[in-house]
């Protein structure tokens, strides 16, 4: 499902003293099967964008197209439920939404609401357990007895069991330790690759945008500030700093190397291992990186 924002504006509490324009004339196109990172500091309009993706909000102006579904100010879409089945949103701290008595009931809640048959639900919960790396031994446990990392996985499994075509992730690793962060992010990467799941990652982390996304959209004050391939956008230090964002640490470091040594090592997605050998050549005075 392609996602198209066409000159979208959204105003909260319109015609009241609290009126607030959250996004303004925003256009972008996310092709089916892409992995896109949406980056911006607090208040840049990221959450408002997310809420348009599954029809929680309708644009004040402009149009949002998600596959065949169209959201605009003057038409309420009839197939809202269908849309929400196709676009799965993992909100921030999704474990706060767990409520069922057992893990397996919580995961089954979504598909049940969409009228999926009992046999099918059984099959889907089974593969959701596997996808998020949860042991099936936890099936009958209360989700509230689990650790934070496990609860997060249960919540994500509940979304995956709906089998959406688009997965929207709002800061999915906030509060997790580095290992949990890595595990959850590689899981999303794998799901994206294996199931051609269109994935939209909303994040503060430039490192994650660089590592996982194949396209990045930078928002500022509700407008699109930059857009493009991560390795092209995320190296524009001055432009990013102007909107209080930083370039990823590896790129920061390469800038410093250039300042000090007068030699540019371009960022080409190299790993730390590659970078170490480039630096090693540099300090030994091999001209190969000049």
């Amino acid at each position: 499902m392609d996602i198209i924002f066409e000159k979208v504006s959204y105003v909260y509490q319109k015609n009241t003293p609290f009126e607030h324009q959250a996004i303004q004339n925003l256009s972008f196109h996310i092709p089916s099967g892409a992995f896109v990172a949406i980056v911006g500091h607090t208040g840049s309009g990221k959450s408002t964008v997310i809420q348009h993706l599954n029809g929680l909000l309708r644009p004040t102006k402009g149009e949002v197209r998600i596959g065949e579904y169209i959201l605009s100010s003057d038409q309420k879409i009839k197939e809202l439920k269908q849309l929400r089945e196709k676009v799965g949103v993992v909100f921030q701290y999704p474990e706060h939404q767990l409520f069922e008595e057992t893990v397996v009931k919580d995961i089954a809640f979504g598909p049940q609401n969409f009228g999926v048959s009992q046999n099918e639900i059984e099959a889907r919960t089974k593969s959701a357990f596997e996808a998020v790396g949860l042991s099936e031994e936890l099936r009958e446990r209360s989700p509230f007895d689990l650790s934070g990392g496990q609860m997060r996985r249960v919540a994500i499994a509940g979304i995956l069991a709906i089998q959406p075509e688009v997965l929207v992730l709002d800061e999915p690793t906030a509060g997790l330790d580095p290992k949990g962060h890595r595990e959850i992010m590689s899981m999303f990467k794998r799901l994206h690759r294996e199931n051609e799941l269109t994935t939209i990652l909303v994040t503060h982390s430039m490192e994650d945008a660089l590592e996982y996304a194949d396209h990045v959209i930078i928002l500022d004050h509700g407008t699109k500030y930059m857009e493009g391939k991560p390795e092209e956008v995320l190296i524009q230090k001055d432009k990013l700093q102007a909107v209080q964002l930083d370039v990823p640490e590896i790129i920061q470091f390469l800038f410093r190397v250039e300042n000090i040594f007068g030699v540019k090592i371009p960022y080409q997605g190299q790993s730390i291992v590659d970078l170490a050998s480039e630096l090693n050549r540099l300090i030994r005075g091999d001209g190969s990186s000049e």
């Binding site: 330790d177 580095p178 290992k179 949990g180 890595r182 640490e249 590896i250 920061q252 470091f253 410093r256 730390i272 291992v273 970078l275 170490a276 050998s277 630096l279 090693n280 300090i283």
Partner: peptide, 29 residues
Amino acid sequence: SGLDIPFVAKLVDELTKLGTKLSKEPLNH
């Protein structure tokens, strides 16, 4: 212990493997 190490420490590690001799454990850029 399930923790990560900072970028600089990882880079130092790889440099050391390549025979670069750093005198102390650098913490920052």
